[in-house]
């Protein structure tokens, strides 16, 4: 297992992908990711998403704190991905604050709603608001904390267009796809 990242290791990539399938299928629930060799600034979960999904057709936007030689070289060497601006990005990585406003990212077009960005939100030091979520993949409404929930509500209103989010924290991953409906319970002071 030490030999990550696993661009050639189809077994580890398959296991990583299964976690992504589960996370995307059951929004708001936390799923585990395995460790891999990655740049220190990236979480294991975020690095796993990039390594599992990106190739030389993928445009990746790195926010300021992630746009380092180490991350770029690692990403390009292992996936061939193209480092891109916000507008063209298929995958976006950054802390919540560094990615705002979200308007620059592509949300797809009515004929091709999948041509939209996937945002990977690193670290959890954002202002949390208690929310209640519902929608595909959610059995009974779930309570979770989100930053700026009004932006997720706005995103859901664009459905079937919109952005898809993964929250990553070390070895954990949680998804909020565009299909998830958000109700604000109360703001934390």
């Amino acid at each position: 297992m030490e030999n990550y990242p696993f661009s050639e290791n189809s077994i580890n990539s398959s296991i990583a992908f299964r976690s992504l399938v589960n996370a995307t299928s059951y929004p708001g629930r936390t799923f585990q990711i395995n460790k891999l060799n990655k740049p220190s600034v990236l979480s294991n979960a975020a690095a796993t998403i990039l390594i599992t999904l990106c190739d030389n057709e993928s445009n990746v936007y790195l926010s300021k704190e992630y746009n380092t030689d180490e991350v770029r070289n690692w990403l390009i060497f292992n996936t061939g991905a193209i480092i891109s601006n916000k507008k063209n990005a298929d995958f976006v990585i950054g802390t919540w604050k560094s990615l705002l406003p979200l308007n620059d990212f592509k949300i797809g077009v009515p004929e091709y709603p999948e041509r939209s960005a996937t945002l990977i939100i690193e670290e959890t030091k954002y202002k949390k608001v208690k929310c209640n979520i519902d929608g595909p993949g959610i059995k009974n409404k779930l309570n979770i904390d989100l930053p700026n929930p009004e932006l997720f509500i706005e995103n859901n209103n664009l459905y079937p267009l919109g952005l898809d989010f993964y929250f990553t924290n070390d070895l954990e991953i949680l998804s909020i796809p565009r299909s998830t409906k958000i109700n604000i319970i109360k703001s934390e002071l």
């Binding site: 992908f17 992504l20 399938v21 995307t24 299928s25 599992t52 999904l53 990106c54 190739d55 057709e57 993928s58 298929d90 709603p113 999948e114 939209s116 996937t118 993949g137 079937p160 898809d164 796809p177 565009r178 299909s179």
Partner: peptide
């Protein structure tokens, strides 16, 4: 990778 990207977007929509 190409199929996996498609699958995840499919689950989102």
């Amino acid at each position: 990778r190409m199929i996996r990207r498609a699958l995840l977007k499919a689950l989102c929509i």
